[in-house]
């Protein structure tokens, strides 16, 4: 990523400057508040989470105080927990369907259409899409909760007034809500990416008689591939830990049908008291996120190398 590059290139050069190489008192003093926050509320909790994930701690009752290390008990419980595995599956559907596919495709479509659309169309549609993204997540949850109710606007629009879509197709509605909310981000990122595509490349292909679609798939998309990949990575990381939207709309229900991992973690830890097991689920979530990030970064490696 850009930042990683900077550290590699810029950071080292700056260390050699004449005024440096000695830790000043102000260095420590000015770093202290940030370090205290990050160590106290990030690093220590992460380390503590790794420990708690292997204990039988509970929210209330005797095990809230006298909990003990239980080795791999939580991990084996997780391996045999059908709800956990269905939760993993739901999380992947949610991330891939509503995040990676829907948001990227819609965002790219809007970015491409916006390039050629009339200024009025682009500005007004852009504003609507961005407004959906700017709204607090809880408001999006409430809007879609009402929208998909029995007798709600969605039912009226597709002529099925009596169905409560949050019980008949909960995962689909949750995915639609997330796609609705997140598309603006992709649109903004990909519009910026498209603006950096040199026009000469497209014009050259046009002179050779290539159709719009050929130019899109053979010229434009390959050029913005790094932007697309980073966009997908950011969407993945944002969607995989999303809690508010789904929890507020469905509380994971009906019958765990929308219990994606963060929601399942909350249910286990704070509703079923199993803080230790909940932490194990959170650790599993972090590992899944890390694996996906590594996959993306490996995909980006050729571009990173060329960039150097």
């Amino acid at each position: 990523m850009t930042a990683a590059q900077e550290i590699g290139a810029g950071g080292r050069a700056r260390w050699r400057r004449a005024d440096a190489d000695k830790v000043k008192i102000s260095t420590i003093g000015w770093l202290l508040p940030a370090a205290a926050l990050l160590i106290g509320l990030f690093l220590v909790p992460v380390g503590y989470a790794v420990y708690l994930g292997f204990t039988n701690i509970e929210l209330l009752g005797p095990l809230a105080q006298d909990y003990s290390f239980t080795g791999l008990a939580n991990v084996s419980r997780m391996a045999h927990d059908p709800v956990f595995w269905s939760s993993v599956k739901l999380t992947l559907i949610f991330v891939v369907g509503s995040g990676i596919v829907a948001q990227t495709v819609l965002g790219l479509a809007l970015a491409l259409l916006g390039q050629r659309a009339h200024v009025m169309v682009r500005a007004s549609v852009g504003s609507i899409v961005v407004l959906a993204w700017v709204l607090p997540e809880i408001c999006v949850a409430f809007i879609w909760y009402s929208f998909s109710q029995a007798g709600g606007m969605l039912g009226e629009l597709i002529g099925r007034t009596s169905s409560d879509f949050l019980s008949t197709a909960p995962l689909l509605i949750v995915c639609l809500a997330n796609a609705w909310r997140g598309t603006a981000f992709s649109m903004l990122v990909l519009s910026a990416g498209l603006r950096n595509v040199p026009q000469e490349a497209d014009e050259a292909a046009q002179l050779e008689g290539a159709s719009y679609w050929t130019r899109l798939f053979r010229v434009t998309l390959p050029i913005i591939r790094p932007t697309l990949m980073i966009n997908m990575l950011l969407i993945t990381l944002g969607t995989i830990s999303d809690f508010t939207l789904v929890f507020a709309m469905t509380q994971g229900g009906p019958g765990n049908e929308t219990a994606i991992l963060p929601v399942y973690m909350y249910i286990e830890a704070f509703q079923f008291n199993a803080l230790g097991y909940g932490t194990t689920i959170a650790l599993a979530l972090m590992i899944i996120g890390a694996i996906l990030s590594i996959v993306y970064i490996r995909q980006l490696r050729p571009e990173l190398r060329r960039g150097r």
Binding site: A4, A49, M265, L275
Partner: peptide, 21 residues
């Protein structure tokens, strides 16, 4: 700086239980 960038991607859900504790 690498640690700081890593932290930006860390899910809040993971931090919550230990912070609560």
């Amino acid at each position: 700086l690498v640690v700081i960038i890593f932290l930006t991607g860390l899910p809040v859900t993971l931090l919550l239980i230990p912070i609560y504790q």
